[in-house]
Structure formats: structure tokens, C-alpha cells
Amino acid sequence: MKKRVGIPRALLYYTYYPLWREFFTSLGAEVVVSSPTTKGILNQGVKKAVDEACLPVKLYYGHVMDLIGKVDYLFLPRMVSVEAKTYICPKFLGLPDMIRHNVDNLPTLIDVNINRHKNDNQLYGAVYQVGKMFSANPYNIYAAFNRAIKVQNRYETLLQQGILPFEALSVLERGDGGDKETATPQQGKDLTIALVGHPYNIYDNYISMNLIEKLKTMGAMVMTPEAVAPEVVEGEANKLPKKMFWNMGKKMVGSAFHFLNRPDVDGIIHLAAFGCGPDSFTGELVEREVRRKKTVPFLNLTIDEHTGEAGIVTRLEAFVDMIRWKAVSQ
């Protein structure tokens, strides 16, 4: 019987799922993803999680609980750093411990350390350690990892073409070779809005209150940091007086600065999660730059566990009205 590996549909799922999935399936395991976020999943998570955690971490708890009983392993790597000289965020560092101590009846945890902060050599060691749980053959592990890297690269290429993760995942799922016919750039919209935030906030339809869909319905094309090339992010983020050491924060700030310089971007929305430390910094850094430039309208939205949509809708409507009104008057 195939070993079942559970992956919570939360946090870095939106960034690395293709990599993880390809690796485990190549080694003969079955990958099980938790259900899309619902009120039930969020409530479960909020109840279990420590109060000080941010909203996305609380949601992660809910997704872990959704997988209990359905899988033999739970893939919960300790993601310390994914690139040189940056860190993810302290809450990611402590995630395996938080889960282990707060959630009962857990399956076997796969909680290897991923830390590329100082050197890259550590990475394959971690990969091999996980691979050994599924295959005794070192070559198989190596081959699976290579395949996984290829799929991940393809996913990132799709994202950089402006395809949103949800669609990019289904393109990969279908497994068709050609990117061209599957790439569906958004068309027929009169506005372009850049939505800047952590991937796990902006792409989770439940906690983002369907923000991307709402913007599309209002006639806006949506651009996200995932569509900005890493070199561009790096170049823009270097304009900060001090290096930002959160890689996700750096991506948000760098891409927001990039969007600020693009004539085709009509407005920038920063989506912050309640209780997120880095978000409070990135929001402020972006807002200050926006105010200095005074060219692009900016909106900062904060999401939390409340389900009331009225506040978000009012602000979004007013933001879009403002942009359109401005366009008419010019």
C-alpha cells in the first residue's frame, strides 16, 4: 500500500506545493492535501492555536487537523531559510514545535530543517533525510528531487507569466507540455491593480474574502508579486537603506516598488494579516514610498478571523471608484 503524505493547504503550500508533490509521488507515496479553507477549518485552528500566533498560522493548525486520520505522514518541514542571508519568519521556525505540542493524534511528522541561510549544501542533506523514509535507493531520491526541481521551475515560470497559482497548479496537474494554449492572461479589464501580500493570504479565497475574484468582478486585472522576476525584486529591494532579512517581506516590498514604477499599474493594495509582524513593516515601508512618489493610489487592508465582508467591500469599492474617477477627470 502506498504511504500517504499529508500537506496542509496553507502557508508555503502556495509557494512550494509542486516541488513537494513531485518529490513524494516520484518516490511512490500518495500526496493528500487538506481541503480548501472553510469556516470550519479556520475555527478549528483558532481554537487550537496559541493566541499570539498570526492568522495564517492559526489557519495552518486547522489544515493540519483536517488531515488527521487521513494520512500516515504529515509534511511539516522547519522552514528556517530558503535563500542566503534571509530568514522566513520566527513563526515558521517554531511551527513544528507549536503543532507537536498543541495538536493531538498527529501522524508521523516529517519535520526536517531547511536552512539555506549560510550555505546551500545543507539542503540536499535534508532532502535525502526525507527521501530515506520512502526509498532505500539513494539514486531514486536524487532523481525524484531533480524531477521535483524541474516541476517547481515550470510552476515559477508560469507564475512569472502572470498566471495565478490556482490556474498554474491546474496547468501542472493536467501535465500538458505546452504553456501557450493554457496560459490565460486576464483580458477585457480596464484597470490593473497590483495586490501585494503573502501568497498564503492573497491566494486563499476564504481568508482573503475572495479578494482577487472581487477585484476581477469590479473590472480589474490583478497582478501579484509572484509575477515579478526575482532579479527585479532584488534590485528594487536593494533601494531600501537597510537589507530586509525576511525573504517574503523582501519580495513584497521589492515587487511593490516595481509596481510603483510601472505606468500600467493603476493602484496598489497591500493585504496584511492581523498579528503578522513582517506585514506591519512591509505595509509601512511601501506606504511611505507611495506617499513620496504620489503617483499611484494605495490601500492597506488587514484581514483577521472575522468573517464580516462589509468593511473590505466598502474599501475596495471606494478604491476602485477613486481610480476610475481620477481617470475620467484627467
Binding site: 468593511g311 466598502t314 477613486m322 474617477w325 481620477k326 477627470s329
Partner: peptide, 13 residues
């Protein structure tokens, strides 16, 4: 600015 909304904010919680 010039009779058009240039920016706005609303109190949060």
C-alpha cells in the same frame, strides 16, 4: 485633489 479623491482611510476595528 482637483475635485477628485486622491487618497482615503477609514478607522479599522
Amino acid at each position: 485633489r482637483n475635485g477628485v479623491v486622491a487618497d482615503f482611510a477609514m478607522n479599522t476595528v
